[in-house]
Design a protein around this nucleic acid. Structure first.
Lengths: 214, 214, 214, 214
DNA sequence: TATGAATGAGCTTTCATTCAT
DNA sequence: CATGAATGAAAGCTCATTCAT
């Protein structure tokens, strides 16, 4: 009968949606062009607004980028942290769940472009690199590490050193991401089936973590 | 008779060496900053010449970059092609030789930065991407493929499909390269030993290619 | 009957007071930042309204500034003109009264900032300078001049040339104003006592204007 | 016979003169428009060069302004410091000399516009205000103060407190400057004859500083 | 009346490229 | 060959002004 039960006038609904539209446009451009090469005017154009409008919502280019990361990757990490904290089952199941989700939400989507971008341009923008390390790398690896600790504490994993084991789990996913992002459009090299690779990698790793039978 | 002995006066040798100095400086900057962020003024400064001088030797930034690639990676590929053509022994030995050389000459040196750069910025510079695909990717994988074909023809390898097998051999080296190039600050990477990894990978692959005993 | 007693509901009184609030906020900002550097957004914020509201009351920045001047300095000048016209006593008393009032109402208050502002930025905004000269400078010196004429006509002042004498009376007050407005950081100004200075200046000047005893 | 004994090619002479041309153009614009309202494009245009050229010689607008001040006012102050140190005669003569020179070199010339500018806009550009206080205000008043100290030490001045006396000498000159700069083009108020005023002020002040006869 | 989102001209700054010497 | 001064087309950011609600 009536439109979505949003009582606000269309105009105000637009206002609320605006930041999301801008962030979506910015994500597109950042992923497509990289950080430095993205022109704010293009972001605005893609969002259907003028250059100045961007500045109503974001202080500057850097803050726009941070907002994009916060609204996407950091969000996903937050959920992962929460779910990891709430999880009741076996740590191996939790680990598999987390790694797969990481892949599905961050690597098999446009978000992967952000990771690639930081890899490529982080050096040129130290403030951005710092932010990304704090909000994404540190927290992301933190979740994996915490599951290792949990598993060891509960006797579900062997007593490996979590600081050594964490990157062993993280690295292959990162590499797969880079690979599938393909470093050039025309270079159709990747022969790897990501899901097969991931599945094999996870299964193998978790088997390696399993407590040996007495 | 005797090895190249330069009879020219020093300043003239300097003149001839000029392009090499420029290319070396350019390589440094491209690897350090990336393509877009490299300023020609910095390249000139590092080479100890003026900005204008660069344009005496290279039409523009793009041609400078291409020249860097031609003078380094393409050179190495050319030698590999030649050596592969000249090689008389067992194809497995040749393959091992080529993969190791690739690593030692292109991946364990600053040249690896070029690969990373193309991965990161190739999308923004289509003309560059095209050039790189033609001159590096295509020819590089071509050598590997040709050795596969040779091995199969000579009955030294199993009759695998070369088009499928080539990337299987290329991908792990690329991954290792990206891994070791990954210097995202604070993101501690696991302590992979490149040579151990490479050796294991090559040995395993060649064993897999070996013709099964009848 | 009785003094102005406002029968309107409070919100409506608020409505009527709005322009005054806006002018007060604008005065604050203009004095604090100067004309060019004052952002209308800040004026609005200080007045607790939206930027757009400003434009309901004032056509543009320039008109806002004019309104500030009209509502303050011009107002004071108008009263001075009126009082001078109504005054019945000795012209020396009137002159003292006017000069002191000028100081107390325009120079020892935030309004002095407007004078400083016109001094500093008038050149950049010819239309503003023109307005200020017409409405403030011309009328202000006009009052002084008219009192001189009156005093001479009534035989209370010596027959000086009013066009020469007027700036002689105006300049010292202006100087004192600039002096006290001088707030260039760290540039310690001498501790002039404005009232002592003014009193001495006025007394001396009026003595000089007195008709010499026959 | 031959042009000025500058052996450099015309082109190079131009290069040497360039900074001075830019500074002159910048001085003009800063004095005419103020700091904030001066557009670098206009400075360039007035100097007959392009916008970018300015940046070959000056890091940014702020440094351009500082360079203008250094090349003019600070220069004059340096000479004053030197002359004061070298002077052998009576301190009263030195003081008169310095105050007159200050007027003739800094106040009766376009340089006065810089002082006016700092007075007007210093608040909006703290970094500039800081620089100006360090390089101009502090050093300028320092010279005056040092002469006071010298005179007292040599028994040529009464034993006044130099920290109190310095601004008493500085302030009237500053005020005269502001006055003669006239705060608006159309406002032809100043009736003061600067030289008469100055002369009277200096003579009076120095008389006041004279050691009373025993 | 009042709002505040939206606009776009304008300013500072950067850098690949040109060219007179 | 070599120089380096000069150019000018962007790009990031600001703010007076407009207008749909």
């Amino acid at each position: 009968m009536h439109p979505p039960q949003d009582n606000k006038p269309r105009w105000e609904r637009r206002k609320d949606a605006r930041p999301q539209e801008l962030l979506a446009a910015a994500l597109d451009q950042f992923v497509e062009r990289g950080y430095a090469a993205t022109r704010l005017e293009d972001v605005a154009k893609r969002a259907g607004v003028s250059k100045g409008t961007l500045y109503l919502y974001f202080t500057n280019k850097e803050e726009l980028f941070k907002a994009v990361v916060r609204g996407t990757i950091v969000e996903v990490i937050g959920e992962a942290e929460q779910d990891a904290a709430d999880f009741a089952g076996h740590s191996a199941d939790l680990m598999r769940e987390l790694l797969l989700r990481w892949w599905n939400q961050c690597c098999a989507t446009p978000l992967a472009g952000i990771t690639k971008l930081m890899f490529a341009e982080g050096n040129n923008f130290p403030e951005l690199a710092h932010f990304y390390n704090e909000e994404v790398v540190a927290r992301g690896t933190g979740v994996i590490r915490s599951v290792l600790v949990r598993g060891i504490a509960r006797g579900e994993f062997r007593a490996v050193d979590p600081d050594v084991m964490t990157p062993v789990l993280v690295a292959p996913v990162m590499m797969l991401l880079m690979w599938t992002q393909s470093y050039m459009p025309a270079c159709e090299m990747p022969p790897v089936d990501p899901h097969a690779y991931l599945d094999l990698f996870i299964t193998t790793s978790l088997a390696g973590l399993a407590v040996p039978a007495p």
